[in-house]
């Protein structure tokens, strides 16, 4: 079915990004004065294009192409989330740093409390676009066994039935739903009062 492959890859990518992003953000804040890890991750993201990562993952872990696209895009999005979560404005929030230094578990999810919540949600929303782009590039590369058949990106490149209005409708729905999911997961909750040091 047209678009199903893209949808599955988007779901996998969102799951990977949501699971990995906050962990990476937290690591970036703890290690090397806050931003060393996130800098390294962003450089790694810039170095390795997803279109090279997908064949590696598909072959190395014997994953289906759709799943490989999902995982690779998910990791890429997780790095973006980590960067937004650990960026200077977020990292220098005194309340956040204070809570972290007290070891309070309420501050564990850095991304949730960082100032870049909107951008994180937007990153998750852009997952569908990333997935379609990678699918299209894989199709252009014409690697045997790696053309994700039935996907939106492949159909667009191959010039078949996908019409632009259909794409806009389906894409807007997919992005809107992913954003809603991200908004729900990273919603701003009232910060718990710090536990008194001496009871």
């Amino acid at each position: 079915m047209l678009g199903l492959s893209t949808l599955v890859a988007t779901l996998i990518a969102t799951a990977v990004a949501v699971a990995l992003g906050p962990i990476l953000a937290r690591m970036a804040i703890y290690w090397l004065s806050g931003h060393g890890v996130s800098n390294l991750l962003v450089q790694a993201r810039g170095l390795l294009l997803p279109v090279f990562g997908v064949p590696l993952l598909a072959r190395g872990l014997h994953l289906p192409v759709t799943a490989a696209i999902g995982v690779v895009v998910g990791i890429s999005q997780a790095i973006a989330i980590a960067r937004w979560g650990a960026r200077p404005a977020g990292g220098m929030d005194p309340g956040l740093l204070g809570t972290l230094s007290l070891g309070s578990s309420g501050a564990a999810w850095t991304a949730r409390k960082s100032l870049a919540r909107g951008a994180i949600v937007a990153c998750l929303g852009g997952t569908w676009i990333e997935v379609v782009g990678v699918e299209a590039l894989l199709t252009c590369f014409r690697v045997t066994g790696l053309i994700p058949l039935g996907s939106v990106g492949a159909e667009l490149v191959l010039g078949s039935v996908v019409t632009v209005p259909f794409l806009v409708l389906a894409g807007t729905c997919a992005i809107f739903l992913t954003e809603m999911l991200g908004s729900f997961l990273f919603q701003r909750r009232p910060r718990r009062a710090a536990a008194p040091l001496v009871r």
């Binding site: 962003v42 993201r45 294009l49 890429s76 960067r83 870049a116 852009g126 990678v134 590039l137 252009c140």
Partner: peptide, 25 residues
């Protein structure tokens, strides 16, 4: 103002992907 510089380095990978798509198609 502080959001734009954060976005800038992260845009390289998606932007290059789009440019590759435009060129190849």
């Amino acid at each position: 103002a502080p959001a734009v510089p954060t976005l800038l380095p992260m845009a390289v990978a998606p932007v290059f992907t789009w440019v590759m798509c435009i060129e190849l198609t």
